[in-house]
Amino acid sequence: MLLSFTDKGLYCAAGDFYIDPWRPVNKAVITHAHSDHARWGHKYYLCHHYTKPLLQARLGDNYYESIGWNEPIYINGVKVSLHPAGHIIGSSQIRLEHGGEVWVVSGDYKTEDDGISGAFEVVPCHTFITESTFGLPIYNWKKQAGIYEDIRQWVTHNAEQFNTSVIIGYSLGKAQRILTAVAPLEKPVYVHGAVWNMHQAILSAGIALPQVHRVTPETTKAELKGSIVIAPSSAEGSPWIRRFSPYNVAVCSGWMQVRGNVRRHNADAGFVLSDHADWNGLLGTIQATGAERVYVTHGFQSALSRYLNEKGIWSAEVKTEYGGEEENAESGKAVNTAEE
């Protein structure tokens, strides 16, 4: 086994390094900058160039090294390369090759190209470790263009009534997609501090984004009238959000596929905008990798794994500590909308 599943995370014994470990280790290869995958306390971090400034912003000073996609390096004789995962900016699948064995760790991934995160690349392998956040057949997404159009219509409708449109999405990844969606409306966009920090970090990676304004105590009511506000889910139902009154709230998340979730959020609208592969995306990718063995991590792992076995692809579930709830932990609100 090129990788083993330990209580600290996925471990490559041949190369003596971990992938997205959840306990402090000496050497960590990081798929992407979400907090459940990129944790604090490792002595060495290897990641994509775009991920590095995000880790610096979130984890502070550490020993970081970054490489580009499809630029293999060797760690103790194990060939390691990163490949676009399409999940968020800098997100990468990790390909390991050693003694003729090829393993790929998907991290989190999305098969539709969102125009920001890099187009997902199918990486052929013997063993594929896939996420399963939306691993049930009820999760099938509409095309991004259509969802963006729905969001713009909603914002326009609110603005006609002079209401502010508050759009909820986690600060790294979703917030930038929402920003791209509303940019053609040419309305002022205000953002929560958490979104602002990520925005600055992404700019520093050399990636261009539409202009935003940070919401501060000095921001006046007049400025906010009919504007767009992007905030993380911790802002939902908080005193912070009340300053935008009158406003309408929308939540952008794959979980919005199910009506009960929209109702639980008490949101005026739920847009099914996800940064993860849907059911067909997962199945299509697994098939395309040509993998003989598929390990299924965080999400609906038992359902997806059982389904693959029944379809003749060897599969097993793996327990990990991914799929945390970074931005909801404090509000305790919807367990399910975290950094999906």
Binding site: L136, I138, E310
Partner: peptide, 14 residues
């Protein structure tokens, strides 16, 4: 498969 339909139903709740 029927079990996957069931699993989906229990997740959606409707």
């Amino acid at each position: 498969p029927a079990w996957l339909f069931e699993e989906s139903y229990h997740t959606v709740g409707d």
